[in-house]
Amino acid sequence: MPFQPVKFYQTGTFTVGNRLLEPEVRSVQANMQRTNSLNSGHRACQGCGEALGARYAIDAAMNASNRQLIAANATGCLEVFSTPYPETSWQIPWLHSLFGNTAAVATGIAAAMRAKGRRDVRVIAQGGDGGTTDIGFGCLSGMFERNDDVLYICYDNEAYMNTGVQRSSATPPAARTATTMPVGPEPGNVFGQGKNLPQIAMAHNIPYVATATVADLHDLEYKVKKAIGIRGAKYIHIYVPCPLGWGAASHDTIKLARLVKESGLFPVYEAEHGVVTSVSRIRKRVPVEDYLRLQRRFAHLFGKVPAVATIARIQAMADQNIRKFGLLEEGTHS
C-alpha cells in the first residue's frame, strides 16, 4: 500500500504540515522537535537539494528508529560541506568512509551491532551518485547480495559535484558537465545505455527498493520509515537537484524535483523483492522541455536553432517511463 495522501484539507498532504491535519499525519519535518540531523551552518551551496534531501531522510530515519541510528557517509559534497574537520553539522553518530567503500563500512557497523546484541540500532550508508553508481558500486552490490541489514541512500544529483561537476554514470544524456562539454555533433553527455541503479538493486531481489524526490516529502518520509522497519538490505534513491552543477536558480530546487517527476523523466516508485508494488502517478503532466529549460546544463538545446531531435529523444525517455511504470493510469504498476 503506497503512502495515502489526505485529500482536501485546504492543501491536503502536499504541504510539509497543515494546521488542520491530525498531528500523526503531518510530516516529521513539520514537528518542532525534529532532530535537525544535519544542522545549520553547513557549507552546502544556497538551495542545495542534497542538504535538504539528507535532512529529510535522516530526520525521518531518526524518528523511525527511536533515535538509534548510525550512518556511514561516502566522500562527496554531503560529507565535505557537513564536516570540515573538526567541525560537523551532524547530530547523529556518523562516520566518514572512503569515496568507494561506504556500503562495506556500513556492513561492518551492522555486524558490530549484531555482535553487541543491539538489534535496536539501525544502520544507514549514504553517498552521492558517483559514490554509488560508479566507484562504490562493487561494495554496494556485495551488500545487496549478502542482504546485510543496512539502508543505503543515494543522493542523486547526476554528477560528481564535489570535485567540480564531472560526469558520472548517472549523468543524463545531453547534459553539460566539466567533462561532457556542449561541443561537437552530439553536444553534452552521450545517449548511452544508461545505468539505472534502482532497477539494478531490484535485480538483487533485496527486500526493499524505492525512489523519491525532495519535492514529495510525505512520500519520502513514508519510504524511509518503511525501510527502517525492514531487516535486510534496502536501497532508496533520492533525486536531489544541484543548483550549482546544473546551472539552476537556487529557489528552483524543489520545482525541478517536481518537474522531473511530473514529466516522467524520473519515475517514483517502490519495489519489494524485485517487484514494483506502487508508483506515484503524475498529477499534472508536463513536457520535458519545462524541466530542461530551467537548467543551464541543457542551455545548448535551446539555442538559436533548438535541438528539436535531441529534445524529442529525451521526451521519448520520459514517455517510455510513463508506459513502463504506468505513471498516468489509475491503479496500474508495471
Binding site: 485546504q10 504541504t15 510539509v16 510530516s27 519535518q29 542538504a51 535538504l52
Partner: peptide, 9 residues
C-alpha cells in the same frame, strides 16, 4: 502549512 519550515536546506 509548515512549508517554509520544512523546505529550508
Amino acid at each position: 502549512c509548515d512549508n517554509c519550515y520544512g523546505v529550508c536546506p
